[in-house]
Simulated assay, not measured.
Amino acid sequence: MDGDSTPPLESRRLRLRPWTTSPADLSRLADIYGRDEVTRWLGGPPTVSPAELVARWAAVRAADDRFGCWAIEPRDAADRPAGTILLKPLPQGVGEVEVGWHLHPDSWGHGYATEAAQAVIERAFAVGVPEVYAVVRPGNEPSLAVCRRLGMTPLGRMTRWYDVELEAFRLMAPVVVE
């Protein structure tokens, strides 16, 4: 599975494109998701291979093209994705959609998570998604800061979606007045 034919999303500094099964992408995925400083906020490392992650993410997109998981490529370092940005249905949610980001530590502190999330959220609103949620493990201050920079409303701690207590945030689509 080499990604899909969907055109990449673009922002000022980033290109968001499907992950592929290229050796470079699989190596970067293994590096990102093999790091404790990343996976401790995700509940542990993935239980599948990087190639299986790519296949699962492609299946999310194939099931509903509003959703997906994209490689975050800084324009000045396109040969090395900074991480993953995702937009997907929340488990046990009824039409609820989650935005999330998982970045390699060498890409922290550059504003990539906020910029990528903004691009994905704007796209979601453009295709009719009425609201987007983010869920963050308590103590993950960098991700909590991203939620604040995105203008998301804090909803408090919940166990609603992943059976673990998480900080929940919501951003509603802008109201269009005609």
Score class of each variant (00 low, 15 high):
residue 1 M to C: 10
residue 1 M to N: 08
residue 2 D to A: 10
residue 2 D to R: 14
residue 3 G to L: 11
residue 7 P to T: 08
residue 8 P to D: 08
residue 9 L to C: 09
residue 9 L to N: 03
residue 11 S to N: 03
residue 11 S to G: 04
residue 12 R to G: 14
residue 13 R to D: 15
residue 15 R to Q: 14
residue 15 R to Y: 08
residue 17 R to L: 07
residue 17 R to G: 11
residue 18 P to V: 06
residue 21 T to R: 13
residue 21 T to S: 11
residue 23 P to C: 05
residue 25 D to Y: 13
residue 26 L to D: 10
residue 26 L to R: 11
residue 30 A to S: 02
residue 31 D to W: 14
residue 33 Y to R: 07
residue 39 T to C: 05
residue 42 L to S: 10
residue 45 P to T: 14
residue 45 P to N: 06
residue 47 T to P: 03
residue 49 S to N: 09
residue 55 A to T: 15
residue 55 A to I: 02
residue 56 R to D: 14
residue 58 A to V: 12
residue 59 A to K: 05
residue 59 A to V: 04
residue 62 A to T: 05
residue 65 D to K: 06
residue 66 R to K: 14
residue 66 R to A: 11
residue 67 F to G: 04
residue 68 G to T: 07
residue 68 G to A: 07
residue 70 W to S: 02
residue 70 W to F: 15
residue 71 A to L: 05
residue 71 A to H: 08
residue 74 P to Q: 13
residue 74 P to W: 13
residue 76 D to V: 02
residue 77 A to G: 04
residue 77 A to Y: 04
residue 78 A to P: 12
residue 78 A to E: 10
residue 80 R to N: 11
residue 81 P to W: 08
residue 81 P to H: 03
residue 82 A to E: 06
residue 82 A to H: 07
residue 83 G to A: 07
residue 86 L to R: 06
residue 88 K to F: 07
residue 88 K to L: 04
residue 89 P to Q: 14
residue 89 P to L: 10
residue 90 L to Y: 03
residue 91 P to T: 06
residue 95 G to C: 08
residue 95 G to W: 03
residue 95 G to V: 14
residue 97 V to W: 05
residue 97 V to S: 01
residue 102 H to P: 04
residue 102 H to C: 12
residue 105 P to D: 06
residue 108 W to L: 09
residue 108 W to E: 09
residue 111 G to E: 11
residue 113 A to F: 05
residue 114 T to R: 09
residue 116 A to I: 00
residue 117 A to P: 05
residue 120 V to F: 06
residue 121 I to P: 00
residue 124 A to E: 11
residue 124 A to G: 14
residue 125 F to N: 01
residue 127 V to E: 02
residue 128 G to A: 12
residue 128 G to D: 12
residue 128 G to T: 12
residue 130 P to R: 12
residue 133 Y to H: 15
residue 136 V to N: 05
residue 137 R to C: 08
residue 137 R to A: 13
residue 139 G to P: 12
residue 139 G to L: 09
residue 140 N to M: 07
residue 141 E to M: 07
residue 142 P to V: 02
residue 145 A to L: 10
residue 145 A to K: 07
residue 146 V to W: 13
residue 146 V to P: 12
residue 147 C to H: 04
residue 149 R to L: 01
residue 149 R to N: 07
residue 150 L to M: 05
residue 151 G to W: 07
residue 152 M to R: 01
residue 154 P to H: 13
residue 156 G to V: 02
residue 157 R to C: 13
residue 158 M to R: 11
residue 158 M to K: 10
residue 159 T to K: 14
residue 160 R to Q: 13
residue 162 Y to H: 15
residue 167 E to L: 07
residue 167 E to A: 14
residue 168 A to C: 13
residue 168 A to S: 11
residue 169 F to M: 06
residue 169 F to N: 05
residue 169 F to Y: 15
residue 170 R to G: 03
residue 171 L to V: 04
residue 172 M to T: 07
residue 174 P to N: 03
residue 175 V to F: 09
residue 175 V to R: 10
residue 175 V to S: 09
residue 176 V to T: 14
